[in-house]
Amino acid sequence: MAGNIFGKLFRVTTFGESHGHALGGIIDGCPSGLKLNFEEINNELNRRKPGQSSIVTQRKESDEVIFLSGIFDGFTTGTPIGFIIKNKDHNSKDYFNIKNIYRPSHSDFTYYKKYVIRDYRGGGRSSARETVSRVVAGAIAKQLLKIYNILIKAYVSSIGGLNLSENYNKLDFSKIENTPVRCPDIQLAEKMIKYINKFRKKGDTIGGIITCIIKNVPIGIGEPVFDKLHAELGKAMLSINAVKGFEYGSGFYGTKIKGSNHIDKYKNNGSTKTNFSGGIQGGISNGMDIYLKVAFKAVATIKKKSINFNKKKIFVKGRHDPCVLPRAVPIIEAMSALVLYDYIHMYKILLF
């Protein structure tokens, strides 16, 4: 199976399945001399892990990372960083009834046709549990980006028909973690929680949108043509399970206004009066805030009876998220960090 490596110089390779012994990864290209904050790494994992509230899957995993290499006395050595996260609470028997069945809108059919064998336990390699390895690598990338004071903050801005219309500049990011749904508008967050619970009780699911803001990005990150910064960010986000759409800057809204109103006029200091460009022009960062949105579908694993590929009625057991967005917030931040630090590493900006 190809496609398990992300990045060019700062690269992460992930491995493992949802119900295997462990998941893990290898981070290559991390510079030596970085004093790791293990508490911050664990905090990122805690934000992603299952069982953290009533509106996510009740699978109980501590998601404790075990580092195997590349770290000595708390400092990175410059050699590959190997790590694993053991699976402890996987109930494989819940999936025996779909051993020979293709669940609708899942990867079951395509995986089997491509590889002639599939791990039906929780989706195997196609499970979103794979993203736990991305969060570990992203947490380290975040610590490297702190040297530049680059701040990455993501939050849930939409669940179904409930939308946060407030401009991100007016939001208090410190409130993002105050609710299990990770929306900084507390009143809207309470409505979102009730909305998700309504679908959970019915055995159904609901989707939404996560907004991500990246501040203090140096001018000049990204390359023209094929390696545009927004193209890499788009690839990163679209590689996440259940993601159906990506936009940055004015996005699709930019199609509804005329060019004379969409132009970001310059100030005397080189910054712009507006930021419809979303901090990226010609594929290169211009020093303004980068902001993007990622759309997640209502996931296909529902507890209602559904019709499979062979027109048989099936009932999917197991523990699943009625809405994946709350747990996806740290994944969005992690992938953003991996993209940005890989570019910075390529330009050899970082000096120890």
Rank of each mutant, 00 (worst) to 15 (best):
N4R: 11
F15P: 00
G16W: 00
K35I: 11
E39W: 15
I55W: 07
Q58P: 08
F72E: 14
F75L: 13
P80H: 06
G82E: 07
K88A: 07
I98K: 06
N100R: 08
R103Q: 03
P104E: 10
T110D: 09
I117N: 13
G124D: 00
E130M: 09
S133G: 06
A139L: 04
I140M: 02
A141S: 11
Y148H: 15
L151N: 12
L162R: 05
L164W: 00
S165G: 14
E166M: 11
E177G: 12
P184N: 12
D185Y: 07
I186T: 10
E190N: 15
K191I: 09
F199A: 03
R200W: 04
D204A: 06
T205P: 03
C212M: 01
N216C: 09
I221D: 01
I221P: 02
K235P: 07
L238A: 11
E247H: 09
G259S: 05
S271A: 13
K273H: 10
F276T: 09
S277M: 14
G282W: 05
G282N: 06
M288N: 12
I290P: 00
V294M: 01
A295H: 11
I302V: 13
I302C: 08
S306D: 15
F309R: 14
I314Y: 02
R319N: 05
L338P: 01
